[in-house]
């Protein structure tokens, strides 16, 4: 059985990528299983998805603890402990990271080691489509290539999954074409599935009674969302061009994080530590004064 784990941010397309690989494998006659895991939906929040491919019925379910291939849609997830990107990764695991950095730069800046493949899918998508968007087809094609799937089945899987999402034929064709470029651009690797060393017995520990002040789900540490930065969630950032702003405040009203304030001159200002990059402000801006810039990789956001 081949186990592929996808890590992305809400809106990037990790779940759809896992389905593209699942469908492609299924079309090739394999037994496939795919599933996502996420909390209450939030664009930018860490998302994981899992695809299993086998020749026999699949008995595993839920999260993949020891992946053969890990596909990372946004390199900033590697440093986020809640995303658990490197959990269960060993010397046999192949890692793909969507990043403008070279493998050596990534190794230097993160705790990634071992077998690493890097390609800047976001840049390819920006150049080809001229705007940001989900990169599910690209991630799916890369993962399919690394998993040894055939291009025809990936092409067909992209059509099926993107049609299922309600995308139009021209959009699907553009995605398909770029996905196949990505497929070709990635060097095939030899994945090494097969039995891993047995896991030792779990070290169990039963919690003891705590007083209700501690043993009840609650927070007493005072308001701390103000010190919680969600900067790392952004793959793109909204940037205001004041000369185009008509002061309508729609961006201020639509920001789900309250990250936009209004200055004394009536113009909005984005407070970046609380901006998760959902870009709802860009969508609602009637004068295109809110523009989009890609977050530089590894920069101090």
């Amino acid at each position: 059985m081949l186990s592929i784990r996808f890590h992305g941010r809400g809106g990037q397309g990790a779940k759809t990528a896992s389905r593209i690989v699942g469908t492609a494998a299924f079309l090739e006659g394999f037994t496939a299983q795919d599933s996502p895991i996420y909390g209450a939906e939030r664009r930018g929040a860490p998302v994981a998805a899992f695809t299993r491919i086998a020749k026999k019925p699949i008995r595993e379910r839920g999260l993949i603890a020891r992946p053969d291939l890990v596909v990372v849609a946004d390199a900033s997830l590697i440093g986020d402990p809640s995303a658990r990107v490197l959990d269960g990764v060993d010397e046999r695991t192949v890692l793909f990271v969507n990043s403008p950095l070279t493998p050596d730069q990534l190794r230097a800046r993160t705790s990634v080691s071992g077998r690493l493949t890097v390609l800047d899918l976001t840049d390819l998508a920006l150049k080809q489509f001229g705007k940001r968007g989900a990169i599910s087809a690209l991630l799916g094609a890369v993962a399919g290539r690394l998993a040894g799937l055939r291009p025809e089945s990936i092409r067909e899987a992209i059509v099926r999954e993107l049609t299922d999402l309600g995308l139009t034929a021209p959009v699907i064709e553009r995605n398909q074409a770029l996905a196949m470029q990505c497929f070709e651009a990635v060097q095939p690797v030899t994945l090494e599935p097969g039995p891993r060393a047995p896991v030792p017995s779990a070290q169990l520990r039963t919690p003891t009674y705590d007083p209700p002040t501690r043993g009840t789900a609650g927070i007493t540490a005072g308001p701390n969302s103000a010190i919680r930065s969600v900067s790392g969630w952004r793959t793109f950032r909204p940037v205001l061009r004041p000369d185009l702003c008509n002061g309508c405040w729609l961006c201020f009203a639509s920001c789900p994080e309250g990250a936009i304030t209004i200055k004394p001159d009536g113009k909005p200002a984005v407070y970046y530590p609380h901006c998760k990059g959902c870009l709802d402000c860009v969508e609602v801006c009637p004068t295109d004064a809110m523009t989009v810039e890609r977050e530089p990789e590894g920069a101090n956001k």
Binding site: A202, Q203, L204, R205, T206, P207, T213, R214, G218, I219, T220, A221, G222, P223, N224, A226, I227
Partner: peptide
């Protein structure tokens, strides 16, 4: 009844309780 709950999870839980209860914002 034996609870399936591990040492590692216990340590993570303690860390979260620290954040939720003991850590002061300093503001």
């Amino acid at each position: 009844p034996v609870l399936l709950y591990t040492e590692a999870e216990h340590r993570e839980m303690q860390q979260m309780q620290y954040l939720a209860h003991e850590l002061k914002t300093g503001r």
